[in-house]
Design a protein around this nucleic acid. Structure first.
Length: 225
DNA sequence: ACCACGATGAACT
DNA sequence: GTTCATCGTGGTC
């Protein structure tokens, strides 16, 4: 049994690792950088191989690429025109998930940031798989490990994240989706500030010049160099 | 009611 | 490098 699974058995100690509300109630760009090297975890009910029983499926991976999106002053943001049925959640409680449907095929995962009433979100763009890799392969139907979670639509598929995850509380163990500080207790390695690369965001037209994309240098799971 | 367009991924040449 | 499947969202009429 590995260290993460071991820790997960001790619920009280494990909750201490989960990033808190106050972590998310800050400037979006700062949070984006600090989410690098953190561990995203989903806990789902999955059928076993012969569909005879349901078991718990845990997927965990290190966040290696993110983008920051602001509100009214960011033309690339869904919240640039204020509150709409879709963007409403970006103005709400920091630390909840904003999951939206993209290009008719994919769900993309964001963490809502800034204080209640101010729009902001960090898009999780790429992950390095750590635990539950067999379950990820079952969901993704690809061959190579490098292509399993190296894109925002790929990682949500691998982790079982879809529209019902919109609005879930990322700071709660009970929500089935949360982000932990893997460097705490030496569970996983720390990240040096000089290993963070800052560039422009991908796939947008308006606001394309702003340097709001961050990724871990030399990590092979980053979607685009 | 209509319609253009994506914070993408996969399959091509 | 290119093309295209796919559909919810939001702006416009």
């Amino acid at each position: 049994m590995n260290k993460l699974q071991n820790l997960f058995l001790d619920k009280e100690k494990f909750k201490d690792l989960i990033l808190s509300r106050s972590f998310y109630e800050r400037d979006t760009s700062i949070i984006a950088q600090e989410l690098l090297n953190k561990i995203l975890i989903t806990v789902t009910q999955v059928k076993n191989a012969d569909f005879t029983e349901v078991e718990v499926g845990i997927c965990a991976g290190k966040i290696v690429e993110v983008e920051a999106y602001y509100g009214l002053n960011d033309p690339a943001s869904h919240a640039c025109n204020g509150i709409t049925p879709r963007s409403k959640i970006m103005f709400e409680t920091p630390g909840i998930a904003y999951v939206y449907f993209c290009y008719g095929n994919h769900y993309l995962l964001n963490a809502v940031t800034e204080k209640f009433g101010t729009a902001g979100a960090v898009l999780i763009r790429s992950i390095e798989p750590l635990e539950g890799i067999n379950l990820m392969f079952a969901r993704r139907k690809v061959i190579s490990l490098e292509n399993l979670t190296n894109g925002p639509g790929k990682l949500t598929k691998a982790f079982g994240i879809e529209k019902s995850y919109n609005g879930r509380d990322l700071t709660s163990l009970e929500s089935g989706i949360f982000i932990i500080d893997g460097a705490k207790y030496g569970l996983y390695s720390k990240l040096n500030k000089e290993d963070i690369i800052r560039t422009t965001r991908i796939g947008i037209k308006n606001g394309a010049e702003r340097l709001l994309r961050f990724y871990i240098k030399n990590n092979k799971f980053v979607s685009k160099k």
